[in-house]
Write a protein that binds this DNA or RNA. Structure first.
Lengths: 339, 339
DNA sequence: AACACCCACTGAACCGGATAAGTGAGGTCA
DNA sequence: TGACCTCACTTATCCGGTTCAGTGGGTGTT
């Protein structure tokens, strides 16, 4: 069960190791007939170049890293990351790049993981997720000189390249849509405070509310979990002048919110309109199906992977704006019964 | 930004490369004082051993692989894999093992990926998921001699080690519980036919139905998606003698089924009881919360990782039986209104 | 004092590729 | 015919660790 090396091929072909290397890598230096013979032998004996040897010879590791800071049990619920990873993967595996994944507990560990990966030459680049305002990981990665693509933005990415989507624009579109339906008391259940995209959305909401004169529109903080989403919703719907429309920062909270509304005897969408950020099959499964801010997450991941591979290849890359999410109206939004 | 090597440490410490290697790996051959001096220097200059060089010197790659065959868009919805990966990760990262992930399209590609990974010495072992009856991947991995832990079973794993959980037992427990509540028309909405655990559950259902004399109990095939779960449920609930209890092979289908029932004006649990296989926060979010077959998936993954690491270390490992899922009764099950 | 023995370390080979430098055969051209 | 060039290779070195076979000095034994 000994795995073949180029030396084995060289022996069989009656040439030197160097010739085999040239032949297999499409380099000049061997005749076409010899090249074909070598390639045939390599295929026949099932040769795969030892990635360690290749990496050691100054080349690349042919792998990129992704570290996620997320407690084990909540990671599962959010479809976002798995969809993102699928998209990233599709792009990477087409170029025989591997994806190395690690779940970390805190930002310090995360930085340590990057440092170790890079020191070990285990990876050629990384994706940075869940960007925060003034994120300490950004300067750390800049200092390491590790090729990085930040997933998120814009802004706060320092000299690192990023792939982002215009959350502010969709939020404005959504609020204008709800406004047009007649809603005047709109509340957004936000994601974790401190995350950059949470702050961007909050700022956009403040801005559009001011413009439309919606003085009862606001954001309440949450943490993306269904439990918290349910709790916040219960509180909001119990207040005297309860909102007529709720915008949730992710689909899990939106579904939890829908359940709470129904449990409290409110009819959706007649008594309450609901919008979910991030569309997933879940949003279509519940009843009524949720109006959602829909976006092609796998494509987003694929773009991020493309950018990272370009950065690794040494190309100067900048920020890449991915498609803006669009509002997919479904059964959970309608004009309010009591304006 | 040159990354330090043992040669740099050797030069600073005034010893040879060999001495540094012995010192850092806890090998005998250096005095305690020299060892401490070398370790101090290594820490100071931020040394990390080049994993490629290490792997090349006959040692291990310090990475394991996981290939998942799943379309990009459905992968996200199933919390199962992300929870599994979290558990695997926790165990791996404690030993500085990396997890390499790849999404594949079909079994042939999957086998090719294993072959390539192993040929490239990129990984030391793999996890095999979604085991099928007479799975072609089993003999392929046996032939490669690649350390493997099958996640699933029992049976059909050839000489490969496995980690499994007793699905048959839980299914029996569930059916007996529904029977005790008074249900006589129970239907299971099964996962993809051909998957080993689907078949195991189907066989167990047949067996327990015969024993209890439930001649109207049966399994209908599905594919784990919410869409299909909804379609099957709609059909089942439209029939003349509709079932009074439905058991779904995963949580996504169960939630879809709950929606369909409510859309059709049926009250859960009065008119229809629902049980979900695989518990996730989603089951607690909906209304009524779903009775579920609950299990610690991260722990399952951690056990699998432990087994794989043992196999890589050359220990003879066999099959490991993980905890059996338990029935967590919630609001979606009750005695039927019309027995 | 002679010898064996251990300790702490050095030097060199090795893993499997990539690659720069060297070599000999054959052809071109003045 | 000799100088020069190109082609198709070979040879040797390198990457950064691990590991095995020395080696010289100190200690213990008789």
């Amino acid at each position: 069960m000994k795995r073949p090396t180029i030396a084995d091929i060289a022996r069989q072909a009656g040439v030197s190791k160097g010739a085999v290397s040239y032949a297999l890598n499409g380099q000049p230096g061997v005749s076409e007939s010899t090249r074909q013979r070598i390639i045939a032998i390599a295929r026949e004996i099932g040769f795969n170049p030892n990635s360690a040897a290749r990496a050691l010879s100054g080349a690349t590791a042919n792998a990129v890293g992704l570290a996620l800071r997320r407690p084990a049990r909540t990671l599962g619920i959010e479809p976002f990351f798995m969809e993102l990873i699928s998209g990233v993967e599709a792009e990477l595996s087409a170029r025989s790049y591997a994806l190395t994944l690690q779940i970390v507990a805190d930002p310090e560990t995360e930085i340590a993981v990057y440092r170790r990966w890079w020191g070990e030459r285990r990876i050629d680049g990384v994706f940075l997720c869940d960007l925060r305002v003034d994120d300490q990981r950004v300067p750390a990665l800049e200092e390491l000189g590790l090729p990085t693509v930040v997933i998120g933005g814009p802004g706060h990415t320092g000299r690192l390249a990023s792939v982002w989507s215009d959350d502010a624009a969709v939020l404005v579109e959504t609020v204008e849509y709800l406004y047009a339906l007649g809603h005047r008391r709109i509340t957004r259940i936000g994601g974790l405070p401190g995350l950059l995209h949470t702050e961007i959305r909050t700022a956009a909401l403040t801005e559009v509310s001011r413009r439309l004169g919606l003085d009862q529109t606001r954001t309440v903080g949450s943490d993306y979990t269904g439990e918290e989403g349910a709790r916040v919703t219960r509180r909001l719907l119990s207040s005297a002048d309860r909102p007529t429309a709720l915008v949730y920062d992710n689909d899990v909270m939106a579904i939890a919110g829908l359940s709470v509304a129904q449990e409290m005897g409110l009819s959706v969408p007649a008594d309450l309109s609901i919008v979910a950020w991030d569309d997933s099959p879940l949003c279509r499964l519940v009843h009524p199906p949720l109006t959602a801010l829909s976006r092609d997450i796998p494509a987003y991941g694929a773009n991020a992977a493309r950018q990272l591979l370009a950065a690794i290849a040494g190309e100067a890359i900048g920020d890449f704006q991915d498609e803006t999410a669009h509002l997919a109206p479904r059964g959970s939004t309608a004009p309010p019964r009591t304006p």
